[in-house]
């Protein structure tokens, strides 16, 4: 597995070595480059379902939960998502030229036409979700190449709404 922190682009590969119940970090790379190795051990605290993480000798507890290939980790008062990828899978696979619905909802307005040139930040569509309006804005300058929905259509989370070409 390769890992990223949330949607950050850096990919990490980690080698852990077993010493009985304890796993020690023995190698770590970021985007293929070896990086400085902290003294880090991980063991399971079976009774509470948490992990005990020792960093440079200081123990901390981590709550963990797996959702699909992602691990949700609560450490030091913050929750993080560490995303897992099969080794060598395409980088940035979900970064987009098509714009997707951030939430399930309804399309209220389509403000552009196919073939129209748009500026970065220009509002392309307005959708309603959770009783609030959300603007779908162009991530970059481009030309509208495809519009997938019309006003009044219901859309699911992640549906491609509109596509831009350079």
């Amino acid at each position: 597995m390769e890992w990223s922190i949330g949607d950050e682009s850096e990919r990490y590969s980690v080698v852990m070595s077993n010493e009985g119940e304890v796993m020690s970090l023995s190698n770590i790379t970021m985007d293929g480059q070896e990086i400085e190795l902290p003294n880090l051990q991980v063991s399971s605290d079976a009774s509470s379902g948490r992990l005990i993480v020792e960093i440079e000798g200081i123990p901390k507890f981590a709550h963990i939960a797996r959702v699909g290939d992602d691990w949700w980790i609560h450490l030091d008062g913050r929750a993080h998502v560490v995303k897992g990828y099969e080794k060598g899978s395409q980088k940035g696979q979900d970064s987009d030229s098509g714009l997707t619905a951030p939430m399930p909802g309804t399309i209220l307005e389509v403000l552009v036409k196919k073939g129209q040139r748009v500026r970065e930040g220009q509002t392309l569509m307005v959708m309603e979700a959770m009783k609030m309006e959300h603007k779908i804005q162009a991530p970059s300058n481009g030309e509208v190449s495809l519009i997938h929905f019309q006003e009044g259509d219901r859309v699911d989370m992640g549906s491609a709404l509109i596509e831009l070409a350079d």
Partner: peptide, 26 residues
């Protein structure tokens, strides 16, 4: 980052892969 990815790798290796983990074993 280094700590988080190490935890993820360790959790995966330990087979802690049930979706609902947490304090079930209290």
């Amino acid at each position: 980052a280094k700590t988080l990815v190490s935890i993820a790798e360790a959790a995966l290796r330990m087979g802690l892969d049930k979706t609902h983990s947490g304090v079930a074993g209290n």
